[in-house]
Design a protein around this nucleic acid. Sequence first.
DNA 1: TAATTAAGTTACTTAATGTAAGTGAGTATA
DNA 2: TATACTCACTTACATTAAGTAACTTAATTA
Lengths: 101, 101
Amino acid sequence: MNPSTSCPKMEKATQMISKRWSLLIIHQLLAGPQRFCTIETALPISGRLLSERLKDLEQEGIVNRDVFPEMPVRIEYSLTKKGQALEPVLRGIETWAHEWT
Amino acid sequence: MNPSTSCPKMEKATQMISKRWSLLIIHQLLAGPQRFCTIETALPISGRLLSERLKDLEQEGIVNRDVFPEMPVRIEYSLTKKGQALEPVLRGIETWAHEWT
DNA sequence: TAATTAAGTTACTTAATGTAAGTGAGTATA
DNA sequence: TATACTCACTTACATTAAGTAACTTAATTA
């Protein structure tokens, strides 16, 4: 592994969002706050990985985890401002996906 | 793994570009056609993976591999139109990276 | 009482990534 | 002429990540 000469912020950013499933989860959350099982049903991802990825995204400050202390407890995932700021990127991918795939 | 209810094009696209290193390689190639060793030096990626990733991207029609039959042979990698169409996405990530990381 | 749902976790298998060294053809250096 | 070096990879192997399936705990519905 070489020391890199490219932009370190770009490296960090791509590392963060290009983990498998991250982009699809963020895309899914653009539709609004959602519960675990809703995301699990919407995407072809297993609970095991969704759980892991949501934790990662929460740590990166991209996703919020809100606990509503009802009975039974309800947990909703949503995008933070940092996460919402990725909307143009996701829309760009959407456009590209429709044109080229 | 559930059957998904989200957009299959989006799934394909994210699968394609969010493989580790793909985004950085495409970003690097936005600067123009480059040789293997140039990319290897510019990014913190090993030859082993760069070789693998370039093959993937070539197969997806995102990257071109041009062989110049000089002595010694020169090989240059560049973006296809499909690859160049990703520029807005990469610029979006750049912007986000500078604002939020 | 039995089955189902939500939000995960545990255990285990398979696939991807990282590291280091090697290859073969050509080039420059002592 | 022998040595070292560059380019564009490849091979072998160790480590890490992803995928699959079954399990958990508490509450809810049939």
